[in-house]
Simulated scan of single mutants.
Amino acid sequence: MNKTMSIGGATYDLFVRTSTDLIHECGEGKSIALPLGDKIKVEDVIETCGGGASNSSVGLSRLGCSACLCGVIGSDQWGEKLIENLKKEGVNTDCITIVDNEVSSFSIILSASGGERVILYTPGTNVHLHDSNFHKEEAKNVDWVYLNHIQEQNCVIQDDIVDVLADDNGPKFTWNPGGCQLDKGTDEPNNKRLLEHTDLLLVNATEAKKFTKTESKEDAMKALIGTGVSNVFITEGKEGTIASDGTNTFYCPCLSEIEVIDTTGAGDAFGTGITWALLNGLSLPEALKAGTINAASVVSKIGAQAGLITDIEMRKRLADTNLSVVEISN
């Protein structure tokens, strides 16, 4: 059984489902408008567990991995529910630090139809992930490390992660960089070292251009491959995904005829599916399909984890799903 460690946040999510008439055009985009002083009836309230590392560890556990989470959770009611959920999902919680008298990360998600939503959140105890509570020795003993979005205060652990990955027998590595890392760019020393040891980099098109300071996703792809990353996946929502290993580049569309209920956690599900595929020796096109299938399942349900699929279901859907991955010129 493959052993994995997900590093990052765990968040308790409260979904508040609103009606579509609260969505209004706002400039070039849309917004959810809540008039001051109004009392607005909601359609539903749903409590779920989320957060990048929580989502990826649960996803990998369902896909048959021996998964653990390295992060920080409060001793409050939200933290208790997060721990309870992880244990129920078979995730090892030994590398989680519990902090007393502080609030766990918490989100209120205003959700409308078609997957449209606004997330209000506090990082809570997620900001306390530090080199002093990062389980470096345990990370050395897994097959794959998955670094999710982390807070700016957490970036001090990057040196320790590089040390783990640089070992001759070190684990493979998935990285989904967060805002502070993206803002600093690929040439920032810590980012540069981490990229050199990255087996799977996951970014959307906007993030890819910001990270590389380029104007197109094609130029961003070339720049990212040039950093030494083994496999780069750039997503663009409904437009699908491009992926490259530096030699071959592939395009995978989204699955059609999927009713999108909620897009929260879609990126984590996508990355989890790809990581599982590469762990199991599948090709880049098959990895693209696995990520797309997992993400499509997640967006068809409320919450980031309800739609995550199992190893058996993934293998069945890979065989049965008509999803055409095509090679494109570099």
Rank of each mutant, 00 (worst) to 15 (best):
E47R: 11
E47P: 01
C49Q: 13
C49N: 08
G50Q: 06
G50F: 05
G51V: 08
G51W: 09
A53W: 02
S54T: 13
N55G: 11
S57P: 02
V58N: 00
V58Y: 01
V58L: 08
V58C: 01
G59S: 11
G59C: 07
L60K: 00
L60H: 08
S61L: 14
S61M: 09
R62E: 02
G64D: 02
G64T: 07
G64K: 09
G64N: 05
G64M: 07
G64S: 08
C65H: 12
S66A: 12
S66P: 01
S66K: 11
S66Y: 09
A67R: 03
A67C: 06
A67Q: 02
C68D: 08
L69F: 06
C70E: 04
C70Q: 07
C70T: 01
G71S: 03
G71Q: 05
G71K: 04
V72H: 08
I73E: 09
G74T: 11
S75C: 04
D76G: 02
Q77P: 00
W78Q: 13
W78E: 08
G79E: 01
G79C: 03
I83C: 12
I83Q: 08
E84M: 10
E84L: 10
N85R: 05
N85Q: 09
N85A: 00
L86T: 05
L86A: 11
K87G: 05
K87N: 12
E89T: 14
E89L: 11
G90H: 11
G90D: 12
V91G: 08
V91W: 01
N92A: 04
N92V: 03
C95P: 06
C95Q: 13
C95G: 02
I96P: 14
I96G: 15
I96F: 12
T97D: 04
D100I: 03
N101W: 00
N101C: 03
E102A: 13
E102D: 13
V103L: 09
S104M: 13
S105Q: 05
S107T: 09
S107E: 01
I108L: 09
I108R: 03
I108A: 03
I109M: 02
I109C: 00
L110V: 08
S111V: 12
S111Y: 00
A112Q: 07
A112R: 04
A112G: 14
A112W: 07
G114N: 12
G115S: 04
G115L: 02
E116V: 01
R117G: 02
R117N: 14
R117W: 01
V118E: 04
V118R: 03
V118T: 14
I119T: 12
I119D: 02
I119Q: 00
L120C: 12
T122M: 10
T122F: 06
T122S: 10
P123T: 08
P123H: 08
T125A: 12
T125E: 13
T125P: 05
T125I: 12
N126F: 14
V127P: 06
H128Q: 08
L129N: 06
D131R: 15
D131M: 12
S132R: 15
S132V: 11
S132H: 09
S132A: 10
N133A: 13
N133E: 06
N133G: 06
N133Q: 15
F134V: 03
F134P: 03
K136N: 08
E137F: 04
E137G: 06
E138W: 09
A139K: 08
D143R: 01
D143G: 06
W144P: 10
V145T: 04
L147E: 00
L147P: 00
N148E: 13
H149A: 11
H149Y: 14
Q151N: 11
